[in-house]
Computed example of a mutant assay.
Amino acid sequence: MQTRLMIYDGPAAADSDVPRTGGVPLAPAGFDWPVCGSGCGEPLQFFAHLPVEDGVLSVFVCQNDPGACEFWDAAEGANRVYLFPGEGLRPVAVPATGLTLLPAVSAIRTQVVTIDPEEVEQDDEEGTPDAYDLARSGWAREPGARFGTQREVLGSLGGSPSYLEDDRVPACPSCAGAMEFAAHLEEGIDWRTAMNLGGQLGYVFVCRPCREGAFLTD
């Protein structure tokens, strides 16, 4: 059982093309900064720049009025996920109003954590523990790795969505098919690097044929 964790790797330049949270988004020419469609109408806050095999995932979440604008729902317009091509991206001009940028930029490195299923204790009531939870715990005790804390885990790439019910998997707005899980996103390591998700785990989904994305929290 392998999980590709995303680990905090120190500060990064605001416009770097490395995996990161915070900073400014990189997007194709002509891209317009998204605004909240859930109520406030203000620009969304840029959360994460995640290079993947077929492009770059760019995640935005509304932070202008937490608790009022429904950033936790994939269909309410208070968040956006884009799957951009991997080439020809440039820094986007930041709007003058709204909570648009995180206070700090966090570089991300990946760490594959391997858990032996035979060593996993199964709870009769809860069943087999979740792969992401196991990997997150295993990160701190991975042999030969730089030991860290669970707080340094910023999420994971690929795999399956942690404890998410099947009926919450979003449908692609273009083809109506079920979207593919792409990443978990944790809030961050401290107040300067963190997105306010109400203490919840974020989920990123994508429809690769349509190049559509979605975000929700648990």
Rank of each mutant, 00 (worst) to 15 (best):
L50S: 08
G67L: 00
L83E: 13
T97A: 14
A48E: 04
V105D: 08
C36F: 06
F60Y: 07
D15C: 05
V18W: 08
T21Q: 03
Q45R: 05
L57T: 05
E87Q: 14
G41V: 01
E53T: 14
A12S: 02
V92E: 09
R20D: 04
G10F: 00
G30Y: 06
A29D: 15
A96W: 14
S106Q: 06
E53S: 14
A104Q: 13
A27V: 12
F71K: 15
W72K: 04
V61A: 11
G39Q: 11
Q45N: 11
D73A: 08
V81K: 01
P103G: 04
G39S: 10
A78S: 12
P85Q: 02
R90A: 15
L57G: 03
D65V: 13
R109H: 08
Y82M: 10
P34C: 01
G55D: 12
G98M: 02
G39N: 11
P28D: 08
F46C: 09
I7W: 01
W72V: 08
D73F: 06
F60E: 03
P19F: 00
P103T: 05
R20P: 07
V35C: 14
G23E: 04
F46K: 02
W72Y: 05
L5Y: 04
G67A: 00
R90E: 15
T97Q: 14
E42D: 13
A93W: 14
A48N: 06
N64W: 02
A96F: 14
V61Q: 10
F60A: 05
P11I: 07
F47R: 10
F46R: 02
Q45A: 06
G37C: 08
T21F: 00
C69S: 10
A68F: 09
L89F: 03
S58T: 13
A29L: 11
N64A: 03
C69N: 09
Y8M: 12
D54A: 04
A78D: 07
V52I: 13
W33I: 10
P28G: 09
E76P: 14
Y82T: 11
D15M: 07
T97I: 13
M6A: 11
L26W: 09
V52Y: 02
G77D: 04
P11K: 10
V59Y: 01
D54P: 01
E42K: 13
R109T: 09
A93E: 15
A14P: 04
A78C: 12
P51H: 03
L101E: 11
D9S: 13
V24R: 11
F60C: 06
T110Q: 14
D15Q: 07
T110R: 11
G77M: 01
V105E: 05
M6R: 06
W33Y: 11
L26P: 11
G67S: 00
F47C: 07
G77Y: 04
G10N: 08
G37R: 00
H49R: 05
C40W: 02
C40V: 08
T97Y: 11
D9V: 11
A75K: 15
F71Y: 15
P51W: 00
A93D: 14
P95G: 05
A27N: 08
F84W: 01
P19I: 01
P95S: 05
D65M: 12
G30M: 03
A96T: 13
P28M: 05
F47W: 12
Y82A: 10
